[in-house]
């Protein structure tokens, strides 16, 4: 349907749009491709203080490794430093956070969208104020009680904290999505004798996927890229990828290995590419299907 609208676009406008999009994609993706390329060089080239073009030609990479490209960064991160362990932990954290966030969020968001009582506004406002709280302050407040009750350091603790921190956003986003789903859908189901929960499960869940997937994408990115919570609440052996990458960067007193961090970041982006490819269809098809009824 949208493509049929696009079909009527005049040629100059299409050229303008395409030009703009290409420009944007270059701006958005260039640093990443620069990094991808540089991850196969040594630090002295990628972060060359002599000439930026060294990152392209790689004289030090040649001098040190004998070839124009090197897999040292990847080998060091994945094999020597067992980065895959951190990847595994991230997988556990991310899957749990997304699932629990969406489970809590869809229930709450649905209720907020359908209630119509005055307190709904205030609940949403309080959630907003909660979200304004700087994460750093929250996390430093958790430390003492978590240590005292022996909750510190475990994956479930970090997961539930990330879920809670993410709830205000999830609630807001899902509430606005549910508000767009017409009320008569579930109300007619209830007239047919369904309970509220049955109506939610049988009528709403099937049409809510687009909103859920978009919200899930943000939960995913929050959990995936979180540093404040995971660095402070997880023990060394339960570390996720981002704190692990941070530890490759060294300390004030000692030098780290930046190329391990660069390679780790590049390789951690690959699964995301697949993920977006899989779910972008869902976003489009699901949403359009839901919209037809609107």
């Amino acid at each position: 349907m949208t493509s049929s609208v696009a079909g009527h676009r005049s040629l100059p406008l299409q050229a303008l749009l395409a030009g703009f999009l290409i420009l944007w994609i270059v701006v958005a993706a260039f640093p990443f491709f620069w990094t991808l390329w540089g991850s196969f060089k040594v630090e002295g080239d990628f972060f060359s203080r002599a000439d930026w073009a060294n990152a392209l030609t790689g004289p030090m990479t040649r001098a040190e490794t004998g070839g124009a490209f090197t897999g040292q960064g990847y080998y060091g991160a994945w094999i020597t430093n067992e980065f895959w362990r951190a990847g595994l932990n991230t997988l556990i954290v991310v899957v749990s956070v997304v699932t629990i966030s969406l489970a809590f969020g869809t229930l709450g968001g649905y209720a907020l969208a359908r209630s119509g009582h005055r307190y709904v506004f205030w609940i949403l406002m309080i959630a907003l104020v909660f979200r304004a709280m700087p994460h750093l302050t929250l996390v430093s407040g958790y430390l003492l009680p978590f240590f005292q009750w022996n909750l510190w350091g475990h994956l479930p603790t970090a997961i539930i904290v990330l879920v809670a921190i993410n709830q205000p956003f999830t609630l807001w986003m899902l509430t606005s999505f549910f508000q767009n789903i017409p009320k008569d859908l579930d109300e007619s189901a209830m007239v047919d004798g369904c309970s509220r929960f049955q109506a939610f499960r049988l009528v709403i869940i099937p049409v809510m996927w687009p909103g859920v997937i978009t919200t899930g994408l943000f939960s995913f990115l929050l959990a995936y890229n979180d540093f404040a919570v995971t660095a402070m609440l997880l023990d060394q052996q339960n570390q996720t990828m981002i704190p692990r990458i941070a530890s490759f960067l060294g300390t004030t007193q000692t030098k780290g290995n930046v190329m391990f961090a660069v390679s780790a970041v590049v390789s951690a982006t690959a699964p995301l590419f697949l993920l977006v490819m899989v779910f972008q269809r869902q976003i489009v098809s699901g949403l359009t299907a839901g919209a037809v009824k609107g």
């Binding site: 430093s140 430390l143 003492l144 240590f147 005292q148 022996n150 510190w152 350091g153 660095a231 402070m232 023990d235 060394q236 704190p243 941070a246 530890s247 300390t251």
Partner: peptide, 22 residues
């Protein structure tokens, strides 16, 4: 057990305030 992290200065005081200490 060991926990070697760049954030040790943020963690050691709360961890050792708990009783018994972490």
């Amino acid at each position: 057990k060991t926990n070697l992290t760049k954030d040790h200065e943020k963690l050691n005081a709360p961890g050792m305030t708990a009783n018994p200490a972490e």
